[in-house]
Amino acid sequence: MAGKPNSRPAVTLLASLAGLFVVWFVAAHGIGSRVFPPPEQVLAFMVRETASGELPFHLAMTLMRVAGAFITAMAIGSAIGIVLGQSARLDRFFDPWVILFINIPALVTIVLAYIWFGLSEAAAIGAVAVNKIPNVVVTMREGARSMDPHYAEMARVFRFSRLTTLREVILPQLQPYFAASARSGIALIWKIVLVVELLGRSNGVGFQIHLYFQFFDVAAILGYTLAFVAVMIAVELLLIQPYERHARRWRPRAA
């Protein structure tokens, strides 16, 4: 067999993406409609928009909102989840709240946030975070419930400080749950951020998509979408995956 074994997934990935573009190319030219542009047209738009500085600016605005909402949601959601996971009594009381909030549609939270707090950046980011917090709570609560009490006893017997216990005993046990909710969170958050931008911001990918929707400019809509998807894939490859490899380094590798 030619090629190193670890070069194969990359080859498969490239072939898979190339296949997708071929299907798109053939379908778009076959249909030949202005509202279903072929890939080269979308690419040309992206190049043009990047050269003018529009695309990078709106990407950066959206990315800033994603990061703000993500950090807020993970911090607050983790704290609540850990507390609920460790106290059955608090959990019994607050569980209905969690169920209520997890079922409130994102649109409702966003609209209410804008009405109550005005069309501000804080309202936008806060609304997105509020949408994500219950999901983080549920995942982190599960993690806190499944912690091994043996380690907590060991920490107590050896008189670990609270900070040491948190850093060395609790957080490492929660790491897989943290990674899981970070993964699903970042994907969910960026989609909600677009809605927030569409409804009440004057920049960002969501605002641009709304603008080009009014012109029925599908090449522009797809261009912005693809650009942001590319950014999110880069975040996954350059931030999330290296972090996970580092966090999992102690685990014996499966044969």
Partner: peptide, 15 residues
Amino acid sequence: RTGVVFQEPRLLPWR
């Protein structure tokens, strides 16, 4: 302080 050796080693696997 008290030194303890538990039945299971109870080492932190991530350290």
